[in-house]
Amino acid sequence: MIEESVVNTGGIQSAKEIIIKIEGLVKRFGKLEVLKGVNLEVKRKEAIVIIGPSGGGKSTLLRCVNKLEEYQGGKIYLDGVDIDQYDVNKLRTRIGMVFQQFNLFPHMNVLQNLILAPTKVKNMPENEAIEKAKALLSRVGLLDKIDAYPEQLSGGQKQRVAIARALMMEPEIMLFDEPTSALDPELVGEVLDVMKDLANSGMTMLVVTHEMGFATDVADRIVFISQGVIEEEGTPVEILKNPKKQRTKEFLRRILE
């Protein structure tokens, strides 16, 4: 709703580069404090991988960014503007999300899954949406499944369709919430390949995952979240090879053994 005036970026010099700024984010479920003041800056075209033990607040953090979760304290800025200032539906068209459980619409075929949001939210003409859907489906290697229903697809195929569906809205940022955790091991690679391709094309990405190989190859930065705070962040080499904090070391030892 507000494009310029009410901008408060906290006096950051390189504000243009920063697409998302999270400041002192606090999230509670009842009495349980899941996020205890998280600060994070995401630069345009950056791929950030978020790791950490389950229950540490990784997914919750992602879900706050597109307001699937309400938060109780702190601010999130998109392009320097508090996300509370945006219309929530407009905000979400700029932020794509991919879920652990795919969440394809089972009563629609692949094409319908893809064109629903562009035609209903952006009023894109249907033939234009179909062309776009075909282009994205071939990009994720599933053009031949355009008429298939979700139940006819493998887990990996479902997730690739879900990624294509999110890309239909031409988001500026993509959130991935454990995109490969529900997949059989042999199907993980095909989804990670699509995500790598996306990162290489310059998409800004926030990825919650346990795939350390992916983190090493793709991440510009790794963020380690534990017990509701960012314990440590840095390049893949810094975090994976030379972790400084005890919790990070323990977590990595457990996950890599």
């Binding site: 597109n66 794509g96 999300m97 879920f99 619409f105 209903k120 569906r165 999110a166």
Partner: peptide
């Protein structure tokens, strides 16, 4: 209907 269906739809910008 699983909650994820609602969330997926809302995350795409549908009202």
């Amino acid at each position: 209907i699983p909650r994820g269906q609602y969330e997926a739809s809302r995350s795409l910008g549908l009202t």
